[in-house]
Write a protein that binds this DNA or RNA. Structure first.
Lengths: 264, 264
DNA sequence: AGACGCGTTTTCACTGAATGAAAGCCGGCG
DNA sequence: CGCCGGCTTTCATTCAGTGAAAACGCGTCT
């Protein structure tokens, strides 16, 4: 046939969903087709099906957007809402005590994804978005997630060029490696003006029986608070959550490691 | 071929996603196949592609769950996180003032979907879940959403049997119709022990330029607070949000209609 | 130990769901 | 009016998808 034989229908459908981004949450059919690299009629047909099911919605302006139905399904992700559901009360507490930004993130490959954020109106503005991604090497949550990530992941991140956000951002792999060791030793991370020059974050790991699965942090104005004083607070929040996830429970017989067959 | 000719690949993929539910957020391949009504090999192939993309994830136990990637995409739904993002600070405020449950919901066809919920540790337990659905005729948010829904929707809901949750649940269409009129007149809804005998909720509409798009509510112990006293608080929150959504902005092309029956 | 049972993965010959070029449609604009 | 850009439909062609059946793994029962 015409374009790329070898492309599955499923991959096309997924490409259509992937066309949306925080920067362009609504798209026209033509934009969708272009971004998903599909001929217009093909896009048209798949999109129609997605709309019928509710994965996409069509606005009065004719533009397409992600539908509520997909949001509903997405909210069943254990690492998304499941985690969030558990964490929110504790995040609330942290927020109420400090009135600073509270963030919750997990690692997804070589980046982090923000699962939840409580943004105090009076706190330093942060440029993160729930569902948004960020590099692992700069933020507090990122440092924690990286420090406890599998070695392969760490090596891969350390091998790639580390993006600089401020004059203080650590971009030297050797220094970063040392920082990660410190984080593991201390059990928390402080990221001082690594992303913006006005903010500082204190982060702690969240564990389940298999290891570190998420990180929680407080983002404060860099000149306002004493990070070392706040660390125990954040650590405590992390531990409460870890306990809720069963991290300190007696490992009831090791889960047999299921050898994954490479690919299909 | 074998099963149902006429079933598109896309519909199969969507059926697989739809197999997950709050009650069963993780499934084995066989369960997935059964629920999606697909032969096992077919399910296996589609699922493999979904996992490769990140729409599904496979746990160490071999069970499948909704993947973080799908959660990310879902979080781009304007009626989901978009709305939530805007609402959360105001919900925080409501929570901090009252320490009661705060809920945000939109209507999806003939049900409501909870977009956000702040559950106070000290507040009445509520049985709702973010991403969960509920009937329109009982809760505070439901009454508001129904009161301002298109007539067809109201008729359809009133025509169907209204499920009873407590002895006080309104199940008589005639009474419900009267209640809806009251809600529109008052500009807020009070749902007293309609869902459980210990809770009561006060809800107000949230508008954008096209009408009511969501509802916000406070859920309190039925014997604890004076709902009429709390109503202005909830209404104010609704109005702040409506303003943020551009509800009271000059409709660009349209002549501003100053209705005599100004709705709160 | 061997045999059974259950869930998953792979094989393989067949076919209809998907395809896209081209033509038709619609609504806005000069 | 006639053009233009974006959307929708048609239709002959074909490749991605299919599922019965068989192989595979793994835990459990005898």
């Amino acid at each position: 046939m015409g374009t790329q034989p070898g492309r599955s229908v499923t991959s096309k459908v997924l490409a259509l969903l992937d066309a949306f981004s925080p920067a362009s949450p609504t798209l026209t059919l033509s934009e969708l087709a272009r971004r998903a690299e599909l001929p217009l009629p093909t896009a048209h047909r798949r999109v129609a099906e997605l709309v019928a099911w509710g994965a996409l919605e069509r606005g009065d302006d004719g533009r397409y957007r992600i539908g509520l139905r997909l949001w509903e399904v997405g909210s069943l992700a254990p690492r998304g809402l499941g985690l969030r559901e558990l964490a929110l009360p504790i995040m609330e507490d942290l927020y109420e005590v400090t009135h600073e930004n509270v963030q919750l993130a997990v690692r997804q490959n070589f980046e982090l994804v923000f699962i939840e954020r409580i943004a105090g109106r009076r706190a330093v503005p942060v440029l993160t978005r729930v569902g948004g991604r960020f590099a692992l090497h700069a933020t507090g949550v990122g440092l924690v997630l990286l420090a406890y990530a599998p070695t392969e992941v760490q090596e891969q991140v350390l091998a790639a060029p580390l993006e600089r956000y401020t004059a203080l951002t650590i971009t030297d792999p050797v220094r970063l490696r040392r920082r990660l060791a410190e984080v593991r030793r201390a059990g928390y991370a402080i990221s001082d003006r690594q992303v913006t020059m006005d903010a500082l974050s204190i982060a702690a790991p969240i564990r389940d029986p298999d290891g570190v699965v998420a990180a929680i942090s407080l983002v404060v104005a860099h000149d306002r608070a004493d990070p070392v004083a706040l660390a125990p607070l954040v650590q405590a929040a992390g531990r409460v959550l870890s306990r809720a996830l069963g991290a300190y429970r007696q490992p009831s017989g090791r889960v047999p490691l299921r050898s994954r067959h490479e690919r299909q």
